[in-house]
């Protein structure tokens, strides 16, 4: 993993964030919408691990918060945790598994939605769970449709590294 990888990952996340806030926020299918930034973050974190995942989540979240003039740090907080978690999954059990991107996207779509709900709730803002729950199914489906092409593109840009580079806490004895 090199600094150039960081630049490539940042460029990928930047484009994803801009496309998300400028175009995809207007796409609604049955109450749900796709989240290109989240899917791209999943791809980057799976390919480059938890540190890249967390840093990428923070960077992408700040971009969204700035571009939408929203509460600064809100999306960044949830995406940082999401990126870290996906990265850890990629470093440990998710390694080399074909279903890992799809499983990660499906699970993270749900967790990200409820994470945002939780933060809004903690901030004392009105955040009804109804629209979120109704839109989760379509959002997950749309994100899964994006998962294969986005992961493929990310894999071309960020070639899989030697797994020995990944930090794991699983130490084999004997």
């Amino acid at each position: 993993m090199s600094a150039f990888d960081g630049v490539k990952a940042a460029a990928l996340l930047f484009v994803a964030a801009i496309v998300q806030v400028s175009i995809l926020t207007q796409v609604h299918v049955l109450g749900g919408g796709p989240d290109l930034l989240l899917v791209t973050l999943v791809a980057v974190a799976l390919l480059r691990g938890s540190v890249f995942g967390a840093a990428g989540g923070f960077f992408g979240g700040i971009l969204v918060d700035v571009a939408t003039l929203g509460q600064l740090g809100l999306t960044a907080l949830v995406l940082t945790v999401a990126g870290y978690w996906i990265g850890r999954y990629g470093e440990t059990t998710g390694r080399e598994r074909a279903h890992a991107p799809f499983l990660s996207v499906a699970v993270v779509t749900v967790l990200y939605g409820f994470g945002l709900l939780l933060v809004h709730f903690v901030l004392g803002e009105r955040a009804p769970a109804g629209p979120l729950v109704r839109g989760l199914g379509p959002a997950m489906l749309l994100n899964l449709l994006l998962a294969a092409p986005v992961y493929g593109l990310a894999r071309r840009l960020l070639r899989p590294v030697d797994r020995g580079d990944f930090a794991t806490e699983v130490q084999l004895l004997g």
Partner: peptide, 28 residues
């Protein structure tokens, strides 16, 4: 080395989460 990278990883997460929380607090 593995423990050290685990420490670095957690440190990075903690710094980023604290940074996001700080921004959120000031912005709120």
């Amino acid at each position: 080395s593995r423990s050290r990278s685990a420490l670095v990883r957690r440190l990075v997460l903690a710094v980023l989460v604290l940074g996001a929380l700080a921004l959120l607090t000031v912005s709120f």
